[in-house]
């Protein structure tokens, strides 16, 4: 069932509580009272249409309205992506780190193995951090600039020079698959970690890994299916001077 603006926010959570972290990313926290989705969004200064599309694409894995997303300003999308980064680095990743630390701590016989897992996850985290840093320091500012010029239909000289040497295509090519390590870690845990007594702990780690992976997948989809195509169209418009882009 699609979530609509007239539903009560509280009912949305009853319907799908896994949406909570995503809702938090918009700066909206619990204590909704009887307010509808629309009212809550207005109260927090959130664009309700954008909110609904994001929430629905998390709620229904088959729902991903590229075209609708592309109608929103890239600013919304980038803000959202940044908030997602924040939740990975400040919440999701540390949570997994704590669980793995615990695993190392309580195991006596296989300590070596779990230390390996810990190092492996750390390698992944480092890759993730580099990836995020690059996006936030290079890619996103470039896009914000680009969108501004696109809307003003004026290209500052600086951007013009930049456009000659840089394009989003470059980033797209290097948008390497950072999920690979996550995928490996899951399989190592599921298939190859020797039997031991810490079932609950291992289960917790796995389920957190699955959640993180799903979330990051959604994140990459937003970048690859919405942000990058839109940026490409703007680059093209700015280069050719034809701004009447009807269908991006």
């Amino acid at each position: 069932m699609l979530i609509t603006r007239n539903l009560k926010m509280a009912d949305v959570i009853h319907m799908d509580y896994t949406l909570l972290p995503t809702i938090n990313r918009f700066g909206i926290s619990l204590g909704y009272g009887e307010k509808t989705v629309e009212e809550i969004c207005q109260k927090h200064g959130v664009n309700v249409d954008f909110f609904l599309e994001v929430i629905n694409s998390f709620h229904d894995k088959n729902y991903f309205p590229e075209k609708k997303f592309r109608a929103f300003s890239l600013k919304y999308i980038i803000d959202y992506l940044k908030n997602a980064h924040k939740s990975y680095l400040e919440y999701k990743v540390p949570k997994i780190e704590r669980l793995i630390d615990k695993l190392v701590e309580v195991s006596d016989l296989k300590k070596q193995t779990f230390l390996l897992l810990k190092n492996f996850f750390q390698e992944y985290v480092n890759e993730l951090k580099i990836h995020i840093k690059r996006e936030e320091e290079e890619v996103y500012p470039y896009i914000i600039n680009l969108e501004k010029s696109f809307l003003d239909k004026k290209i500052p000289k600086k951007l013009q020079e930049k456009l000659q040497v840089y394009s989003i295509g470059k980033y797209e090519k290097e948008h390497d698959n950072i999920e690979e390590k996550l995928f490996d870690l899951k399989n190592i845990l599921i298939k190859y970690v020797p039997m031991q007594k810490n079932n609950n702990l291992c289960n917790n780690i796995l389920s957190e890994l699955f959640k993180l992976e799903e979330d990051i997948k959604e994140h990459s989809e937003m970048e690859e299916r919405v942000m990058i195509p839109q940026v490409k169209a703007m680059e093209k418009a700015l280069k050719t001077g034809k701004f009447d882009v009807e269908e991006i």
Binding site: L116, L117, F120, E180, K181, F183, D184, L185, N187
Partner: peptide
Amino acid sequence: GIKTASGLTV
């Protein structure tokens, strides 16, 4: 089901 070199090392 392991893709990366460091995963294979583990």
